[in-house]
Amino acid sequence: MLEIKNLHAAVDGKEILKGLDLTVKAGEVHAIMGPNGSGKSTLAYVLAGRAGYEVTEGSVAYDGKDLLEMSADERARDGVFLGFQYPVELPGVNGMTFLRTAANAVRRHRGLPELDGIDFLKLLRQKASLLEMDDSLLKRAVNVGFSGGEKKRNEIAQMAVLDPTLMVLDETDSGLDIDALKVVSKGINALRGPDKATVLVTHYQRLLSYVEPDFVHILARGKIVASGGKELALELERDGYVNYVPEAA
C-alpha cells in the first residue's frame, strides 16, 4: 500500500528526513515513535503533500502510484488522510459545508453519487454518534474555539466521513482525556480493514494498547533507526530512547 524508499526531505533548505525507509502493507497498523523534533510530523506532511516540504531524494509509492507526483488534494481524494497534530481553525467556514464539500469531492473521485444535504446529515450523525460527539460542534466554524480534545475528535469524525484508505494520524492521542482516548481509538479501529492501512505517530504506549500495532518503528534524526513489534513500545515506555538515540542518555 505504501512504500517509502530512501526518503530525503528538506524544509526551508534544512534537511529533516535523511534516508527513511518504510513499507506498510494493506491491513497493517504501524506506529512511529521518536523524540521531539526527529521528523515525525515532517514525514506526515510529506505524505500529505504539503507545500514547502521538498523531497530531495527517494520515492514514495502509494497503491503502486507515485505519491509525490500527486497534489495534496489529489492524494486526499485518492484515500490518503492526514490527522493533524495541530488541526487548523477555519474562521467562518461552517463545519457541515466543509465536510460535505470534502465528502462529495472524494465521492466524485470514487465514481459515487454526491450526497445531498439530508443524506449527508444522516451519514454525519451516524459517524458523530460513534465518536460520542455532540453534532453541534459540526455546525460551528471548523475547529474555531474547539478545545484541544474536541479538535482531535473532530479529525477522527472527518476521517470517518471521508473513509480513507491510508490513515496517517499525527499525535491524535495528545491532548485527549482518558475517556476520549478510548472513544477515538474505537473510531480508528472501526476504520481498520483488510484493504486499509494506518500509520500512527504517537509518544505514548497508551494509545497502542487500544489500537494494537503490527509494527513499531523508532524515528530518530530523520531515519527509522529500529523496528519491532508492539513490545518495542513497552520497552520505550520503560527505558526511553537511550538505547536508540545516544544523546537521549
Binding site: 503533500g49 507545500a51 486526499a76 492526514l82 487548523v88 477555519l90 467562518g92 470534502a102 472527518q158
Partner: peptide, 17 residues
Amino acid sequence: FYMQARGLDPKTARALL
C-alpha cells in the same frame, strides 16, 4: 493546506475561505 488535505481543490478551498 488543511482544506486540500481533506480533498478540496485549491479553487474550492479558496472560495470557501
